[in-house]
Design a protein around this nucleic acid. Structure first.
Lengths: 125, 125
DNA sequence: ATATGTGCAAAGCATTTGCGGAGAT
DNA sequence: ATCTCCGCAAATGCTTTGCACATAT
């Protein structure tokens, strides 16, 4: 892979991912980035995200029937989507014992867990 | 909701879902259906799937960066995707203790778990 | 100086929708 | 006979790509 250039647009995209505590849609990321760089195009956002995922700096987050969101790489964690308000929260613990779900001779390399329900705010209303 | 008609195309689509033991892409479903009804169109597949999901007869399955698959309604289960051959398998057990992942005052209503790795066939090669 | 990155616009897919005609009731 | 469903083709929304120019090295 060729050497990567340190452009203004990549810096902005990386820093937004780093500073945001929940996964973002490419469109949302673009809107935030437009505050510092109005000329930024959506194609650049997709190209940067693809590269950052390849480098392990960003992770794709797939939820239900919606377009892929992206978040900065952090500790291993999963997500909770509130069915009332739609917000996606990070969850910071992880259940064990997933191996027990596998048929024999299957090898477990990774897993996705997404929980759905009502967040604290929506539960209290 | 208006009364649903019992057309040949819906019968075929339902029976394919019922007889297949893993989730199918709309495109794959269409190809199988073409064997019994070559004139079937993809729009009809999408319309039928949307109705069947609403009726609870089919479930959408979301995996990674791929288009939504669909499967007939069965017992609660999850999925395993082989990273080598791409096949999606049903898993018939389910881990407990997901509640422990939640922040306080969050209410758990549903969950998705997808495991990734190598299936028995690909492990042995 | 040179090769990579960018913005724009066009292309590609997956999915949805409008419409006139076919088929189920 | 009527009203829903179908197939087709056009439209939509998200994502990718080609190209000419800009810019980091």
């Amino acid at each position: 892979m060729a050497k990567q250039r340190n452009t203004q647009q990549r810096q902005i995209i990386e820093s937004i991912l780093r500073e945001t505590d929940h996964p973002l849609l490419p469109k949302e990321l673009l809107e935030i980035a437009h505050q510092s760089l109005p000329s930024l195009g959506i194609a650049t956002v997709f190209r940067a995200l693809k590269d950052l995922v390849k480098e392990g700096v960003a992770h794709p987050v797939h939820i239900c029937c919606e377009p892929t969101r992206y978040e900065g790489a952090r500790d291993h964690h999963h997500h909770f989507k509130c069915l009332d308000c739609g917000t996606v929260f990070d969850l910071h613990s992880c259940t064990g014992n997933l191996e027990s779900m596998l048929p024999s001779n299957f090898q477990l390399l990774a897993h996705d867990i997404t929980l759905f329900g009502k967040c604290a705010d929506c539960t209290s209303h």
